[in-house]
């Protein structure tokens, strides 16, 4: 009798242990398969995006957002180690600039690195000039870049990855911000949403409207 109840207790304990192990393993693999979501998007009213930064351009000059005042600014955050989205988006901006024709003088595409440790002014210079002669590349200290990204509500992260060059990859938004000549936010685009020609047409009509009203 004693034996049987001991046996039952033993079975109960082992069952409990097995359930605990399975639950833990299950939870663990769930977490492995479904990494935690990125922080949920903060509702960013358009007014929340501030065109403000203090950085170094690709020629080594210190610049601020005011440096580009008077022109429409197409601002894109990325980094030169990014082989796919960054060149795709920068080539897209370059195509849009070409489609603008003479109106391109009123527009400046600005590429801001989120990887200033590797993207020096010199690197940025070689990089942006390969895309378009009017393209500006901006870098700075980690703090300056973080401030710029924060003002644009751009969220980026560094993820450790052993196989990546220097052991990390950067995740970053693919947004292109269009800022007005007075520095205010106008619109935000994604490269895949419309052709470069359509983006150029859109900017062109904004330029014309502004000229009529101004």
């Amino acid at each position: 009798m004693q034996r049987t109840s001991l046996y039952k207790v033993r079975v109960a304990i082992w069952s409990f242990a097995a359930v605990a192990v399975f639950t833990f393993a299950g939870a663990f693999s769930w977490r492995m398969l479904h990494p935690p979501e990125l922080p949920s998007p903060v509702v960013t009213g358009e007014a929340a995006i501030r065109n403000a930064y203090s950085l170094t351009d690709h020629t080594g000059q210190a610049v601020t957002a005011e440096t580009y005042a008077g022109r429409w600014q197409l601002v894109f955050f990325g980094f030169t180690y990014c082989p796919d989205i960054c060149p795709t988006t920068l080539a897209y901006l370059a195509n849009a600039m070409d489609s603008l024709g003479p109106q391109a003088e009123r527009v400046v595409p600005i590429f801001i690195t989120v990887d200033p440790a590797r993207d020096t002014a010199e690197v940025m210079g070689n990089y942006v000039s390969a895309f378009h002669p009017r393209m500006v590349g901006l870098t700075g200290t980690e703090a300056q870049v973080a401030e710029a990204a924060g003002n644009f509500r751009v969220w980026y992260e560094r993820s450790e990855n052993e196989t990546a060059p220097d052991g990390y990859l950067m995740a970053h938004p693919g947004h292109i911000y269009l800022m007005r000549p007075d520095g205010r936010f106008e619109d935000v685009f994604i490269e895949s949403d419309q052709s470069a020609g359509d983006l150029a047409k859109h900017i062109s009509s904004l330029i014309e409207n502004e000229e009529r009203s101004g």
């Binding site: 949920s40 998007p41 969220w155 490269e191």
Partner: peptide
Amino acid sequence: ESGENGVSRMVHLDALDLPEGETVTLAPG
């Protein structure tokens, strides 16, 4: 992989399944 907040992250794939008769395309972006 694009999150809701527009952050693109590269996801490393160990293998790529090619379903029967379907064309799998690798393209910019």
